[in-house]
Design a protein around this nucleic acid. Sequence first.
DNA 1: GTTCCGCATGAATCGATAG
DNA 2: ACTATCGATTCATGCGGAA
Lengths: 293, 293
Amino acid sequence: MKQIETNLILGDCREELKKLKTNSIDLIFTSPPYADSRTNTYGGIPPEKYVAWFLPISKELLRVLKPSGTFVLNIKEKVVSGERHTYVIELILEMRKQGWLWTEEFIWHKKNSYPGKWPNRFRDSWERLLQFNKSRQFHMYQEEVMVPMGEWAEKRLKNLSATDKVRDPSRVGSGFGKKIANWIGREKAYPSNVLHLATETRNKNHSAVFPQDLPEWFIKLFTKKGDWVLDPFMGSGTTALISQKMGRNSIGFEILPQYFTVAQKNVKPELEASPAQMALLEGKGKYAATKSK
Amino acid sequence: MKQIETNLILGDCREELKKLKTNSIDLIFTSPPYADSRTNTYGGIPPEKYVAWFLPISKELLRVLKPSGTFVLNIKEKVVSGERHTYVIELILEMRKQGWLWTEEFIWHKKNSYPGKWPNRFRDSWERLLQFNKSRQFHMYQEEVMVPMGEWAEKRLKNLSATDKVRDPSRVGSGFGKKIANWIGREKAYPSNVLHLATETRNKNHSAVFPQDLPEWFIKLFTKKGDWVLDPFMGSGTTALISQKMGRNSIGFEILPQYFTVAQKNVKPELEASPAQMALLEGKGKYAATKSK
DNA sequence: GTTCCGCATGAATCGATAG
DNA sequence: ACTATCGATTCATGCGGAA
């Protein structure tokens, strides 16, 4: 019986990260506070100071990540006086100087953001998911995110046989369009680097920045059960919750008490009463939870 | 009766651009040769030299563009030894130093991207469409690219039903459905900054890099009839052809004779026999065509 | 003359093999 | 050891030949 740990820490990740062991984390998935937003958190970093603010953090992240691990950064530059700001692309360049490899840029195409109107631009319906690695030999479990052909697909195939030649771009699973006719004889299909997921609208109690599907997809892709997942800007704890559900150990930091409380509520219900264990933490966090499995 | 000009020039854009008048172009839409590709054309620029190669060109483009005009650059970085290369984001930073405003980044989500399976990455199915401007007061005709409401709602509902079948049935009726209801009754919706189009594979004689829909969309969005469109890397002349069809004047440069010939064939059939006029060209191109309208 | 199936092929990338 | 070339991978699309 393995122990799965879900460690939620109330604190500033700039401090808390120092307590983590070197080469201990398999996946870092996070959505840091965007420039000038979440003004209470980390003081609302102005765009021009964003890179300088983030670099010490990314340096620590580089330290705690295993050589085989991956860092996925969900971020999007804001518009400043009519222009897209350059802090994100500058950050990429600076992180490479720190030693990070910029392996890939995934696009999260937000499905259900609905129309808005500005004089100079359209609705922003995508965000970057930057994949960084410590070495070229990182772990990737591609089969885990393949879109399975379930009963649903087989039913469709039977019905299609009559009217099949209508090439119907349907959305399945993680949101990757597949032509049904091509699925014949295959069980699974590989995705691409564009993720077409809806934004989360369900739960109003947490300020979900991203839908649960997003961390889930990357956790499946880059970790196996028992691995360690870190979210230094946990927010309401989506990453930790999903990690727990999927049998991964996790650590999450959140500086703001009100978010931290929500995160605790999200994670706690699934816990057994058992003593906290924080194997990777050299110091002690203010909250720790352990789930037996 | 307005005269619409379609000027196809065989030559190196680095030379030909110098012959264009300052502040004369309303829209520049182009897809330059990507690093190391189209090796016959412009010699296949190595990634590390790409920025230095492009900057003199973008400087000239800045000169010929009207203050109210827009420059749309279709580009994607290639993978070099396991990493996304940084020449595209470096180019953005350098172009801003030249005086360009980086207004927006559209995503072209390619429906049919090149297949392939690799151990460390998935299929690359998107490209950047970088929007640069000379001033914040650029012309934008948003109504021209509005999507008919019926289609939009239908798509959304279709996605929902698919999601419903595969995943979580509970969230359909309550949350998201209502939001759609808010938009029913309107006739048109604004698009977003993600374009979901298939690549063009039709014509064997031309290496159609982008589908006709792509330049068409930006020509509608950023120009009106009688405006001037420029494509310094014309290729087989898609941009020029679409400009002509839509009643815009255009100028296209192509360095490689075989592409140029295809471009001529594409454009010529729609011309009346009439004397060439090249109002904006101070020098003389090797081919010019005029279409009465 | 339609409809239908098979097939070639592309802004690709990796890894093995060859010089 | 380093670079250059080649084969395998595998999907949406249009074309051509077949029913």
